[in-house]
């Protein structure tokens, strides 16, 4: 294949499209890690769960309620899936994670790993591992737009736009608003914030809920692009872990930027040497560990 500006630019766009998923997921991990000090291994499984809420809402919810004509449409799924998964997150935090804060942080990782196995296992039993298509993509997002250098699918453009909006919106709330300042203070010193009368346990619960809701949101966005399968989250989470190691979880903006950049790098690798594209993120991680062990945006504790 000749390397023309056109092929490069189109891979950059497709890479950016993957990058926004890395960005949303690593952002969620970073938000959760900041306050709870745990790495949420269930993040991939909850991303998958978000996609399934959208899929099942479209195909099975109507018949289940005795209204065969009812289909949960895409826009509603985009709101409802994060709410459902966020609520599940609240339950998980209240009933399980809460008991572990006084122990080693590794137990949080192990617990969420167990939860990931349960969620993934249940869906593997009921659904096809090779995946089911999600066919509720709205009319208005069909077709392609001419970007000058390529015809780019409208839907992917929408995914990039809305994801960037959500990522930077989250960044704005955390870094620039009063609510965000409580959150950041809670990250630095929860005891002190408690002494000021802020309900820190509630804040922790809602933070976890918000983090996993972001994962579910990404899952719904992914549903029309990739087929919805029980293993979609497992493949994603390991890559996102590598992204998080590269970026460091200390910075919200850092995790967004790292996610986007690595998506683009992955896309560009497809142009240069396609077989390496599935491992390039892991290889970059190796280089970062050698050169700057704390991660690109990391603060060494």
């Amino acid at each position: 294949m000749d390397i023309t500006l056109q092929t490069v630019m189109s891979q950059v766009m497709l890479g950016l499209n993957n990058g926004v998923f890395y960005a949303i997921l690593s952002l969620g991990l970073a938000v959760i890690f900041g306050l709870l000090n745990i790495v949420n291994f269930a993040h991939g499984a909850l991303y998958m769960l978000g996609a399934y809420v959208a899929l099942l809402g479209f195909t099975s919810l109507g018949p289940l309620l005795g209204m065969p004509d009812f289909h949960l449409n895409y826009w509603a799924a985009l709101i409802i899936a994060p709410l459902v998964v966020g609520a599940l997150g609240v339950v998980i935090e209240r009933t399980m994670l809460r008991r572990l804060y006084k122990f080693d942080h590794l137990y949080g990782l192990l617990l969420t790993f167990g939860l990931a196995l349960i969620i993934q296992g249940v869906f593997t039993n009921f659904f096809n591992v090779s995946g089911d298509p999600y066919e509720a993509k709205p009319e208005i997002l069909n077709g392609a737009v001419n970007l000058g250098f390529m015809m780019f699918p409208k839907y992917r453009l929408w995914v990039i736009a809305i994801s960037l909006l959500v990522c930077f919106g989250t960044w704005y709330v955390i870094e620039r608003t009063k609510l965000g300042s409580y959150l950041r203070a809670g990250t630095e010193n929860p005891e002190l914030v408690k002494a000021f009368g802020v309900n820190v346990p509630l804040m922790i619960t809602l933070t976890y809920g918000y983090g996993v809701a972001l994962a579910a949101f990404a899952g719904v966005l992914a549903a029309p692009i990739y087929s919805v399968s029980p293993v979609m989250g497992a493949e994603m989470i390991i890559t996102v872990f590598a992204v998080v190691v590269i970026g460091g979880m200390g910075s919200i903006m850092g995790s967004i930027v790292t996610g986007l950049l690595l998506g683009i790098v992955e896309g560009l690798t497809k142009v240069v040497y396609a077989p390496a594209s599935s491992t390039v993120i892991f290889l970059i991680m190796v280089v970062v560990l050698l050169v700057k062990p704390a991660g690109l945006f990391g603060r060494e504790s």
């Binding site: 399980m96 137990y107 192990l110 167990g114 993934q120 296992g121």
Partner: peptide, 21 residues
């Protein structure tokens, strides 16, 4: 039980971490 084994293993993980460290 086939692939339910993954669910059972996951469940043991959770119970182990919560109650049986």
């Amino acid at each position: 039980v086939g692939s339910w084994i993954t669910v059972i293993i996951g469940g043991i993980f959770v119970i182990c971490v919560l109650l049986f460290r």
